[in-house]
Amino acid sequence: MTVTVISLDEYAELINRASGAGLTADQLLDETVSFDSLGVDSLGVLGVVSELEQRYGLEPDSGADHSKSATALLFALNRRLVDAGLLTAGHTEQSIVIDAPYDEVWRQTNDVAAWPELFSEYAKAEILQTAENSVTFRLSMHPDENGTVWSWVSERTLDPETGTVRARRVETGPFEFMDIVWTYRKVEGGVEMRWVQDFAMKPQAPVDTETMTARISTNSSLQLALIRRRVEERARLAA
């Protein structure tokens, strides 16, 4: 059995229910933001953990999680979901509804050169090669906590007819493989953008497939919420 990764909206709502903090998803976008600075005390964090455990039917973790940041707690949860077999290692699936015109969503989210302004995780996007409906590019992330800059080359192929984008890593780095499918469809309230990622880590990679699954799940929750905000803002300005 698999479950849906919690969206940032749902996460904010759950934190509010447990702690009364009155947060919006936007306030959780900063990965370093601590519960303390959100005004959620230690008992409130325990309440959040307990609500998350209840939502997913997880056994209480006796080594109770005292994560200082909301993002770290979300990662710990996703890791537990992978370990419990509730999330499939090497496969993630998440979506968000963006309240903007379809063409606007499609255009902005496929403008790879501008991704550093759309995502918070990328420092640089270099276009290496373009063709009709395909692009090859190098992405570089911001340095991680160890100062390592992760970087790789991907190739994206767009199919505007079906609203589908497929991507794969050409230069796979620590991944055995990484295949990505984005789909777009009009729904009530806007455009649903869905990300499906299938991957495996190399044995010598610094993190295993399970950990990467939790990391990507957590990060996708944040990036999707951020992209929604930015696309909606730009669409409003453009209108």
Binding site: N16, A18, S19, G20, A21, G22, G39, V40, G44, G47
Partner: peptide
């Protein structure tokens, strides 16, 4: 009363 105090 702040929401955080209300819930507790």
């Amino acid at each position: 009363i702040d929401g955080r105090l209300m819930v507790q």
